[in-house]
Structure formats: C-alpha cells, structure tokens
Amino acid sequence: MIFDEFTIKTLIRPVPDFPTPGVVFRDITPLLQSPKALRMVADSLIQRYVESDFTHIGALDARGFIIGSIIAYELNKPLILFRKKGKLPADVLVESYQSEYGEAFLEVHADSLCEGDSVLLLDDLIATGGTFIAAAQLVRRMGAQIYEAAAIIDLPELGGSQKLQDMGIPTYTLTAFELKER
C-alpha cells in the first residue's frame, strides 16, 4: 500500500481550544477508525524499521500504545510501556517533564531495559517534546540508548523535534502541521 500523506492529514481532526484555550488538539481517532489509513501508517513505519538495528519498541502513554503495539508485533520486538504516574504496578523509574499543559511525570518499569539495549520510541505526535525527552532520560538511566523517536505527527513550531535532535536523538514523523493550520 502506498503512503498518502494527504489522506493521513485529512483524517487527523483539529479540535480547537482543547484541552485549554488556544490549543489546537490533533485527534487521531478518525485515522484509527479507518482501517486503510491505520494500515498505511503502520506499513510505512514497518517498512522504515524492518531492517533496523534496535532491540525494543518504547510506546508512550497513551496513544503511542496503539501504534507501538502494532509495530512491536510486526517487527517481533519487545514492547516497553512509558506510562503516566501511578499506572505501573512494579518498581518504577520516574522522570518529570514540562508539557504544553504543565508539569507531568512519566514512569517505566525499572527492569525494562539493560545496558546495550536500543529503543525506538513511538507516539502519536511530537509537540514540545516533553514526553519523548522524559522517556529518553529514563532509557538512558537504564543504560540503554535511543535509536530514534518517531511519531505520526510533528508540530515543528513547538520545537519538540528540534529539542530531541539537539539531544542527539534522531526524529521521524509521517506528517507535520503548522500551528496556523486549522
């Protein structure tokens, strides 16, 4: 199946003033409801990473779990969950970060990774980069490295992709929206 960025972009619903006034939330629900579009997204990521040399998929809470689980299954890689605070049952490592909405916390099971592991981080979008940066810090605290940070959507004006690249973390997204795009 050929990737069609236009189709993908038309299935990402802009929701003005959510969750706070002035924010345009990029809702991937319509994309997930289209079997063709979801397959297009998954196939594009699978093709990109099928011969790549990393050991784990790291999925970011919560929409990253959807695409991360598909890619982990298809590439036969272990799936690591990066969750919001208080959601994991065993010993965890915690990292605070600033999101576009304020301070938040990300957790991962402390025994998820070992030195020498390499992780592909996946989420639905890169905005300010806070969640990806927190996940990257957690990965590094366990002695592992980041292979790449990937998402369906980039919001380049918010600077997240640039922050990740400045940290030495390559980024990849399927599409991007400028803030003025409604």
Rank of each mutant, 00 (worst) to 15 (best):
L88T: 04
L60V: 11
S118D: 07
L32A: 06
P35L: 14
E100H: 13
I70Y: 14
L81V: 07
K36V: 13
S52K: 14
V94G: 02
S112W: 08
K85R: 15
H56P: 05
A59E: 00
V50Q: 15
D61L: 05
A72C: 02
A90V: 06
L81A: 12
F65H: 04
V92I: 14
L88V: 07
F65K: 00
P89S: 07
I67F: 09
G58M: 07
V94H: 10
V41T: 02
G102I: 08
L88A: 13
G102D: 10
L32R: 01
A110I: 03
N76H: 11
F105D: 13
E115G: 06
V94N: 11
Y73D: 11
K87D: 06
A59D: 01
L122T: 00
L45K: 01
G86F: 06
N76D: 15
F54Y: 11
R39Y: 11
A90E: 10
V108R: 11
I80F: 14
M40A: 12
P89N: 10
G116P: 11
I80L: 06
I71H: 02
A37G: 10
L81N: 03
A37E: 09
G58D: 13
D43Y: 12
Q98K: 14
L106M: 15
Q47W: 10
Q33F: 00
D53F: 06
D111G: 06
V50F: 14
L31C: 08
I66D: 03
S69D: 00
A62K: 08
P89G: 13
I57A: 02
G58E: 02
F105Q: 15
S96R: 14
I46G: 01
D53I: 08
R48D: 01
A62G: 08
I80D: 10
I67W: 08
A72P: 03
I28C: 04
R48L: 12
F65Q: 04
E107R: 09
F82T: 04
A62L: 07
I67T: 03
A62M: 05
A42R: 13
E74Y: 12
S44Q: 10
A62C: 14
L113M: 12
G102L: 09
P78M: 01
A72D: 03
L122S: 05
F82D: 07
L45Y: 04
Y73P: 00
I66G: 03
Y101H: 14
A90P: 00
L60Q: 04
